[in-house]
Design a binder for these strands. Sequence first.
DNA 1: TTAATGACCTATC
DNA 2: CGATAGGCCATTA
Length: 110
Amino acid sequence: MMTSSKPQESTFQKVYEIVRKIPRGKVATYGQIAVLLGNPRLSRVVGYALHVNPEPGVIPCHRVVNRFGAVSAAFAFGGENEQIRLLKAEGVEFDGENRVDMQKYQWQNK
DNA sequence: TTAATGACCTATC
DNA sequence: CGATAGGCCATTA
């Protein structure tokens, strides 16, 4: 086992690993995930990775929000309001601008 | 191989 | 202060 495997971990696969580790009741930003990947500029690729979303239901893409703490418009896999509702159901609070309190709900990977 | 796209972020006018 | 344009990196066709 592990003789000389080649994981070939693509940036996408790595994004799924990180997003999948997001605890319930917290949210992470694309930029933050990009930093965890090693490049803060991969923010766009992060969104792309979730866009393909190879395993919906396994990857809590609804816990990923932009730098403003709000969900993206293109997210709308069934209604932006729907996604916000999911986060609310997890214990995340939203203000009058559909924004999450990043100071309290932003996931911090130590 | 080149070209185009993209669920972002930042900077500038 | 608000709006607009560009840049960055990776993936796909």
